[in-house]
Amino acid sequence: MLQGNCEILKREQLTETIFDVTVSAPEMAAKAKAGQFAQIRAEGFFLRRPISICEIDKAAGTLRFVFEVRGGGTEALSRLAVGEKMDLIAPLGNGFTLLPQGEVIVIGGGIGVPPMLGVALSYHGRAKAILGFRSRSAVILESDFIRTGQMPVVCTDDGSYGKAGVVTNALVEQIALRRPDLIAACGPEPMLRAVIEVARKEGIPCEVSLEQRMACGVGACLVCACRTVKNGEEHLRHVCKDGPVFPAEEVLL
């Protein structure tokens, strides 16, 4: 974990509430793994905002963050302009398992889609992405996922774009077409529960990325607890240090 003031190289607004910011952070990028996150300082707010890393470009020395404005803190982050600095602590957390061989299905739901781009890219064509959104106006990063080497399956709840319905319908279809060695997912809890259930029924290993309100982000303050099970015993572990990625069989949602 490193702390630094990182220059913003690129900033775009993707939807009414979602922003796309790339910063120069060579040392952090060199260490970062897909699925890790950063704690970003928001001017005027006491606590940093945990934001997942969307894309790591080790050659260019950049990190990309795609985040949603949910309150004052993320709104302050969204106002930072190209050339201004972002105060980051990164990379944090454990990230997703990267299988040296075999194929994966990555699933993102809503603002859970951005971290899955980094995961899919690190598979160089061995990852099939399934992306779920509420409606057409919420769809983000579709063209970026084409760079992963496989066309993503885009689903919308209201059917206004791509396939109509939830990501798990598409997941079942994809598994039937080509059974993956791992399923990796990030998104709202109901989606994660459904994905975990499909993976369990199919007997496919699955990892999910969790979210919780945080303070320190480094494993010291213990506020970001989540319910987990290991060796038959229930324990409260911590999203920032033990996660954010957990094996599906260890999480209680």
């Binding site: 919780q212 303070a215 213990l222 506020v223 970001c224 607890a225 409260l236």
Partner: peptide, 8 residues
């Protein structure tokens, strides 16, 4: 184990 989340 401490209290259930959210804790902050």
């Amino acid at each position: 184990e401490g209290n259930l989340p959210p804790r902050v």
